[in-house]
Design a protein around this nucleic acid. Structure first.
Lengths: 216, 216
DNA sequence: CCTCCGTAGTGAGTGACGCTATCCAGCAGT
DNA sequence: ACTGCTGGATAGCGTCACTCACTACGGAGG
């Protein structure tokens, strides 16, 4: 398959495919001669992965590069790959405010309280958690301590366990794709479902006339 | 309080405060004389809200405008405000692929199956759910039908109900802030917690030596 | 009264990002 | 030889979220 077919087959504009090649997000094709390169199904899959990350996960291109580096680094254990993927996916933490130190302590308390002793001490998501907790704390909520997060922690634990147990690929590229779908796409699904659930429950609680939808 | 104090007090650069004023995200100050305007605690709160939305939720400025419009539209019920906030927060759906129609059907099945009959027929999150499901379907997962989403739906239902029942402000501005914190910040918290849980469980499952952290 | 600092508002400019368009030399097929 | 495509390089574009510089004033100090 040549580059134009690759572009057409994946629905990505040719210029963008070239851009990804240039950026090293897509490995170069196999040279057939000095002016023709051959691309295969692996390239198609990679391209699909990249577009999913961009469109569903809004992952910036620089992070895509990190993720690609992870997939191509043989010798990483499954756990290393997943942790690296999480680190690449995690957004940069907002700049710290005055309560960040207290928020960091609360975050550590949450992680410990959940029993998540497999979380690395330097995981960037620790700081992300602290940043989010800082906002909650400064808005006055969470005054009863981190135990108010209990339902969230329990839900996260359940879903996280489920996601990990459902990983079953042995090919590193397929594993990577599974993890990405699991983390990015299912993460979005979770957010969307929660918003839908909120919409429903707020309708039940706050809408004066009960749902005016005629029975279908 | 004058504009420079407002900026200093909230930690936002003066030029950015002026930009937000220009964009209508921040209401103009009360004129003291032709060259001096007075800003109050409401402006500080609004500014904090805007920064939270930007930094934690990565909400684009154009969406902030929508949200501001919602807060200032008296006469909306609590449910309307929440639905409008959800619509403003929801990211734009990725362009549809070939499986989108099937994904839409699956999304409708999920919403119905969850019993969320309070969800509006035109809620943009329906399309977002379909877009995410399309990706999952095209990657081959979810072949057993939408029932594989059960744990996600249940978690979302639990958390969504919790979020709605914990709303208790009567002042519309405070209510808006509560909803924003609930949706954006707790949404991020949920994603972060899930990543941390995945990291822990993958450590338990995949890391050859069990967590090598010395007991503290 | 004059000088000078600070203020509110405005238009233009900046830098990052993610593409996209144009150009080029070179081969393949006719 | 000519056409049409290839891969690659370079430069440019449009959007976004600010950020800068400037203006015209108002008020305080001397």
């Amino acid at each position: 398959m040549r580059i134009s077919e690759l572009a057409e087959h994946s629905g990505v504009p040719l210029a963008t495919v070239k851009y990804y090649l240039r950026e090293g997000l897509l490995p170069p094709g196999r040279w057939v001669n000095a002016r023709l390169a051959e691309y295969d199904a692996g390239h198609v899959a990679r391209l699909r992965l990249l577009r999913t990350l961009r469109e569903v996960g809004a992952v910036p291109v620089s992070r895509l590069r990190d993720l690609v580096g992870v997939t191509e680094d043989a010798g990483l254990s499954v756990h290393d790959v997943l942790a690296a993927a999480a680190a690449a996916i995690a957004p940069p933490a907002p700049p710290p405010g005055p309560l960040r130190d207290r928020a960091r302590a609360a975050a550590a308390e949450v992680v410990d309280g959940a029993g998540w002793d497999g979380v690395g001490a330097t995981s960037p998501d620790r700081e992300n958690l602290a940043a989010a907790l800082e906002v909650v704390m400064s808005s006055g909520a969470l005054s009863g301590g981190p135990s108010a997060l209990r339902p969230y922690v329990e839900a996260a634990d359940t879903l996280g366990r489920l996601d990990v147990t459902s990983l079953d690929a042995e090919d590193p590229a397929a594993l990577m794709e599974q993890m990405v779908v699991g983390q990015i796409v299912f993460g979005q699904i979770l957010l969307v479902l929660r918003r839908l659930a909120e919409e429903h429950h707020s309708s039940v609680r706050f809408r004066d006339p009960p749902p005016p939808q005629p029975p279908r």
